[in-house]
Nucleic acid binder design. Structure first.
Lengths: 220, 220
DNA sequence: CGGACAATTGAGACGCGTCAAAACTCGTGG
DNA sequence: CCACGAGTTTTGACGCGTCTCAATTGTCCG
């Protein structure tokens, strides 16, 4: 994505969320399927994703699972500042995180107006993303939902070649409000109509209209 | 939660969102169906609802309407701080608002840590509300969605008598991702099973299990 | 190469959307 | 006070899309 402050050297970047994490966080690693934070538990840590993807899961009393969002590199967990996690944070694949205590984070935030503004922007983006997902679930068919999901995911990882789809079919189903079978059928339909190309079950790409198939090289 | 305006006594309350609006906002009135702010337009004002209810509408390119949330007295419009409105704000009924310019609001925020924290809490609540709605739309039938909606709405206006339902059936449908007809049918089903009681089309109440002062007609 | 799990495909049932018409509400004017 | 008309709500009939249950195929790792 972007090249943040990769250099923890003597920079003038003493403000902002990244700066807080760069100077105060410790790096941890969570294996595939591991739970980073559990719904209902005290939120005494805040995280920044350095590598890998995370699913936010909301479990209902009846045991049903919803996934309001997937998170990737550069995203934060716990910015809302609530005392307890309202959703579980689970590692879809092996994930590397920057972790720091919530009390330290809140203290740093209090004296950093830039970071405070950044938190607000991030939360606003989250609200918008949820609203877009609600609109998607209300007005579109299964195939359209899956197509929109794949397009958005591919766009978030601008690569012209095949892109990895780290989450399973059930994860996508719980994100889009569909059954796993319907997700699978929708993907098959999209492949049959040439809207997407698959390599295995977890690599795909969206061919350009003018690029029959084969790897996009230069011109965009 | 926190010690909000628990004490309406003399001052001491020079900070907080309410204080900002109390001291700087002007009061305006919008008639039923009126548009307070239009999606895509510059967000140069921030509002606080003093009376009445507002629907936040997201219009898609195809003209479909989604209503991610309804807002009532005490709720704010425009806290996200984006340059443009990502949804239209429309008056369901005649609405009274406290209005102030965004620049003045942002200036006041910058020197008011209490209000800044409040903004974060409000945005976090909004994220949670959207996540709950997503879960509702993903895992429940039409009747269950309508029931949950009515319960939540009734709970937000704690009155044991009949409560006004200011929004129309189409509004509820666009909120829950259903058709207007299905919402109507669901309400009829709930009435027939005694889960709700209606007076006209826009007043309802949820009888207690032991039925204190209503009359459950013929038992189910 | 084999076993466990994930993904795909199939068949049938049911819920919700769509189209259509009737009943109701409420404001307006005779 | 009643009658009228436009908009809203309710009810009905039918088709289609998605869920459920079930079996098969595919994939990854030991």
């Amino acid at each position: 994505m972007e090249d943040h402050a990769r250099f923890p050297m003597h920079r003038e970047r003493t403000e902002g969320l990244d700066a807080i994490f760069d100077s105060m966080a410790t790096q941890i690693k969570v294996g595939q399927g591991g739970t980073i934070a559990a719904q209902g538990q005290p939120a005494d840590h805040v995280f920044r994703i350095l590598r890998g993807h995370v699913r936010s899961c909301v479990y209902s009393e009846t045991g049903d699972r919803s996934i309001p969002q997937f998170l990737g590199s550069g995203d934060y967990l716990g910015l809302v500042g609530a005392r307890a996690w309202s959703s579980s944070q689970e590692a879809i694949e092996t994930v590397v995180l920057a972790s720091m205590s919530r009390t330290a984070f809140e203290t740093a935030l209090a004296s950093d107006p830039v970071a405070t503004a950044e938190v607000r922007v991030r939360l606003a983006e989250q609200v918008d993303a949820h609203a877009r997902l609600l609109a998607l679930m209300a007005h579109t068919s299964a195939v359209e939902r899956v197509q929109a999901f794949l397009q958005r995911f591919a766009a978030s990882r601008k690569s012209n070649g095949y892109v990895s789809l780290p989450m399973g079919r059930q994860d996508i189903a719980d994100h889009l409000g569909l059954s796993m079978e319907t997700v699978s059928r929708s993907i098959s339909t999209l492949r049959a109509s040439g809207e997407i190309e698959l390599r295995g079950a977890s690599f795909f790409r969206i061919p350009s209209p003018c690029d029959p198939h084969g790897h996009i090289a230069h011109a965009a």
